[in-house]
Amino acid sequence: NQASVVANQLIPINTALTLVAMRSEVVTPVGIPAEDIPRLVSMQVNRAVPLGTTLMPDMVKGYA
């Protein structure tokens, strides 16, 4: 099972992602792969992401 990126805190809309804001977890459905965490740092989310939410490619500006 592949680990996905999960919000480690509430991430407000247009907030730049940080290492502290993300964690890796095996979840269903699978979201952005955990190995992409370094690439996600400083990218912005295009919606509010609640704690525990799996990050999907369409939630991160410039990711997809």
Rank of each mutant, 00 (worst) to 15 (best):
V27R: 11
P33C: 09
A3W: 09
M56W: 04
T28Q: 11
E35T: 14
V41S: 03
R39T: 10
Q9D: 08
N1P: 15
A21V: 12
L17H: 03
V27C: 07
N8Y: 02
P38E: 10
G31K: 01
M22C: 05
V26D: 09
A16M: 13
V6H: 01
G62Y: 08
N14F: 08
I13R: 12
S42Q: 11
M56I: 06
E35G: 12
T15Y: 10
L40A: 00
I13D: 11
P50D: 10
V26C: 12
S42C: 15
N14M: 10
N14P: 00
E25A: 11
P33M: 06
L19Y: 12
V26F: 13
V41Q: 04
I11R: 01
R47L: 07
Q2I: 12
L10D: 15
A34K: 04
V45K: 02
L10Q: 12
N1T: 15
M22K: 00
E25H: 07
N14A: 07
L40I: 12
I13T: 12
G52P: 02
A48L: 15
N14G: 13
A48H: 14
M22N: 03
V20C: 10
N8Q: 07
A21W: 05
S42I: 04
M43P: 03
K61T: 14
L17Q: 00
M56K: 07
V6D: 01
E35Q: 10
T54Y: 00
V5D: 01
S42P: 00
A21I: 08
V20H: 13
A21S: 14
Y63M: 05
V60Q: 01
A64G: 14
P33A: 07
Q44E: 11
P33I: 06
L19S: 07
P12F: 06
G52T: 00
V20F: 14
Q44I: 13
S24P: 14
M22Y: 01
L19H: 08
L17N: 03
T53F: 13
D58T: 11
V60S: 04
T54E: 03
L51V: 14
E25D: 11
L17R: 00
G52M: 02
V20S: 15
M43Q: 06
P12Y: 07
A64P: 12
A34F: 05
V6G: 03
N1R: 06
R23I: 06
M43G: 03
I37Q: 01
E25C: 08
G62C: 11
P57S: 08
V60E: 04
L55N: 02
N14Q: 06
A3P: 11
P57F: 07
P50M: 13
V5A: 09
A48K: 11
V5W: 00
S42V: 03
N14R: 06
R23D: 05
M22R: 00
D36H: 14
K61H: 12
T28Y: 12
V41L: 10
A48Y: 10
A21N: 15
V41I: 11
L19P: 06
A16F: 15
L51M: 15
S4N: 01
R23P: 04
T18L: 06
S24H: 08
G52Y: 03
I11A: 02
M22A: 02
N8P: 02
V26E: 11
V5C: 06
R23S: 07
P50R: 10
L10W: 11
G62A: 08
A7S: 07
V45C: 05
V27M: 05
A64L: 13
A48E: 14
V27Y: 02
V41Y: 00
A21H: 15
L55V: 08
G31F: 03
V26K: 07
T53G: 10
L51P: 15
Q9H: 13
I37S: 02
R39C: 14
S42W: 08
A7C: 05
N8C: 09
A16E: 14
S24Y: 08
G62S: 08
A64V: 14
L51T: 15
R23N: 06
L10N: 15
V30N: 11
T54Q: 02
I32C: 05
R47W: 06
N1M: 15
A64T: 15
P57G: 07
Q2A: 12
T18V: 07
A48Q: 15
V41P: 02
D58K: 07
I32T: 01
M22V: 06
L10V: 11
G52K: 00
M59W: 11
S42Y: 08
V6E: 01
V27G: 03
A21K: 09
P12D: 07
E25K: 08
S24C: 07
P50F: 09
P57A: 11
A16D: 08
K61S: 11
A48G: 08
A3K: 09
V30A: 11
T15I: 06
V26Q: 09
E25S: 10
T15K: 08
I11H: 02
S24Q: 10
G31P: 01
S24E: 11
V30Q: 12
A21C: 11
S4H: 02
L10I: 10
A64D: 13
P38K: 11
P57K: 07
I11E: 03
I37C: 02
T54C: 05
N1F: 11
V20A: 15
V41E: 05
I11Q: 01
L40K: 00
L19K: 08
N8G: 08
G31T: 03
I13G: 09
A16L: 12
Q2N: 15
L17S: 01
A34Q: 03
E25R: 08
V30S: 13
L51K: 14
L17D: 04
Q2E: 13
T28I: 10
V30H: 13
A34D: 06
